[in-house]
């Protein structure tokens, strides 16, 4: 062996050693990834909601129920109610009556199995000075006795737009508008890019920055696949008009909780419905109409 080639060999050995060390360090750096349990092949390979056969869906639901049983020790039931034909849900809020008590916020929090630590909810209530519709003047953090005499209160949640910008921007079709007007998210398909949160003009979408924390005794066991089942970490969620209730004919949780009866909900396709009467007889308006999102959510004043 010449000197040159032995130098080369040594160099090659050093390089090999470096590469091995590098690979080991890379593996060590990634190790936190493998700490997280809960990852399983069935979940990883699960298809999009619309591609699931009834049998697939059954299997997925059973898996989720079993996981919940294991995680919380409570039996939950996950249903997947589908839209009723000839039904389109519309919501309206009477701002003359709303007193900003935030009971709807709390009811949403409980009904939808939100994270207890952040007190998450799909609804935010703005306190606004009378005489303006400029949200810039609003404030959500008020904590004084309500209603303040010179203020009105405006709860904002998903407006279930007919032209939803959030649905357009989703790169993987993980969110879509259903036949009854409800915009839903497939929590098992969302990749968590949060483009929809940037696109929504109503701050309606929430992200699971961590795994939601819920004490077992506070879990609402009556769950919907596309609505209030406990969400996984890292996905986007939003108000779904309590579809696990409303598709069974029941009223949304926020409406039942409203102490002032400011909320009106119903099927706009039914000419005799409450909501239809409100739209026909009150001067209603929508938020940010100029954006062309065509909300299914209306506001009105009595006086």
């Amino acid at each position: 062996m010449t000197e040159k080639s032995s130098g080369l060999t040594r160099r090659r050995m050093v390089k090999g050693l470096g590469a091995t060390l590098g690979a080991a360090a890379f593996g060590a750096a990634l190790s936190p990834l493998f700490r997280s349990s809960g990852m399983n092949a069935a979940e990883l390979m699960q298809r999009h909601y619309k591609e699931l056969t009834p049998a697939d869906k059954q299997a997925v639901i059973e898996r989720l129920q079993a996981e919940a049983k294991e995680a919380f020790g409570v039996s939950i039931s996950i249903q997947d109610p589908r839209p009723t034909p000839q039904t389109k849900f519309v919501y309206a809020i009477n701002l003359s009556v709303c007193n900003g008590s935030g009971k709807c916020v709390e009811a949403c929090h409980k009904e939808n199995n939100h994270d207890r630590e952040t007190k998450q909810s799909y609804i935010r209530v703005l306190e606004m000075p009378k005489g303006t519709m400029d949200m810039e003047q609003g404030n959500t953090t008020y904590n004084h006795t309500v209603p303040s005499p010179d203020k009105f209160y405006m709860p904002v949640q998903c407006q279930q737009c007919d032209e939803p910008p959030c649905v357009d921007v989703c790169p993987v079709q993980a969110t879509w508008k259903e036949k009854d007007g409800i915009v839903v998210v497939d929590y098992n398909w969302c990749i968590g890019c949060r483009y929809c949160m940037a696109a929504c003009p109503y701050h309606a979408r929430r992200f699971n920055w961590k795994k939601p924390y819920l004490p077992a005794e506070e879990i609402n066991p009556n769950q919907g696949y596309l609505s209030n089942r406990v969400r996984p970490q890292g996905v986007v969620e939003k108000c779904h008009f309590c579809l696990h209730r409303t598709r069974e004919g029941r009223l949304p949780a926020c409406l039942e909780a409203c102490p002032t009866g400011a909320r009106v909900f119903g099927n706009i396709l039914d000419p005799k419905s409450n909501i239809r009467w409100v739209l026909e007889n009150k001067r209603v308006y929508v938020l940010k109409e100029e954006l062309g999102t065509k909300p299914s959510f209306f506001y009105f004043f009595d006086k």
Binding site: S121, N139, T141, N143
Partner: peptide, 22 residues
């Protein structure tokens, strides 16, 4: 309708609740 106290406020990171309360 009687006045009420809002008892449930979301806890936002980086958005402290209003301190003054009347």
């Amino acid at each position: 309708y009687p006045a009420m106290k809002p008892t449930f406020k979301p806890r936002d990171r980086f958005l402290p609740p209003t301190r003054e309360s009347n």
